[in-house]
Amino acid sequence: MSPRRLLLPLIALVLVLPGCLPSSSVSEPLRAVKLLLGFRPDVQFAPFYLAQEAGYFAEAGLEVTIEHSADVLVLVADGRADFGVADATDVMIARTSGIPVKYISTLYDRFPVALIGPAGTVPSDPAELAGLRIGTPGEFGSSWHALLALLEAGGLTRDDVTIRAYPQFNQVEGLLNGDVDLITGFRSNEPLRLEAQGMSVDLLTIDEVAPLPGPGLIAGDELLSSDPALATAFAAATLRAQQTIAADPQVGLDAAVAAVPAIAEDRETALAVLEATIELWGGEPGAISGFIDPAVWGPGYGALERLGFIDGSVPPGDMVLDVLALPD
């Protein structure tokens, strides 16, 4: 039999066979997606763990792999990861530096960083920060942006306070040691850790003083132009998980424990951290929408421009793409 005579029945078989098979075996395969997180595995990432375990990602046609890196923005921009979680303020700086990445959906409705100190010692007016010793991870990230924005709101500069860097994020130990008067930290994390060590604390938050947009989902320009529906599907599945957890934090804790068993070592604190994190997302399930709020982005952009982090060459509209608002 000649090769051509062999080929025809084979082609016929390939064309006919799918129709004979059960429908599940020919359904669309899941799209492999890589998500990069900048912090260590933690209960604050419960929405991603839940979306994986409860099948929200799979229902959206996604098979998500979660990895951790310190260079989320660069790796997402370069297409080595599809999505990431990053600070909005970092997106503004990166985008202005020419890194092709956009903020696509809000995770934290409220800016998570605050100044934290022993109860009764934290000023309520940023102008009273003058002369204090403040511990922060370093001259990068949301903590640094929040600290400078607070100082600016009080009519101060970095030279009016003594700043001590804790690049290993161990500023809690510095505060407990008495090496600093105040520290920057996540409202949903450091206060709980300090209270667990017996220190009752007060907070100076930034929301009312100098609003900045909080962390959110990011994606690279290339993915957003080639497949915006993928970004919408990913953001929607994440939002669904956030809303589910907001309605029942225990579900989120269980998912986090299943993904990161070490979290079970202290379930009580982990649940408290998760509940505080839910407050930062927006609180009630109905208030968590992923919406990118121009009323916060505008002033935040202005603050970063005044502080010299960005030069205004890239407008805020070029830094965001609200994928949840895209038409179907």
Partner: peptide, 20 residues
């Protein structure tokens, strides 16, 4: 990297994590 406000290690951190 363990704790400093200046130095080339700090500059690397600032360039990488702060200024991109």
């Amino acid at each position: 990297w363990a704790g400093a406000s200046s130095g080339l290690g700090v500059l690397i951190n600032i360039a990488d994590q702060g200024l991109f």
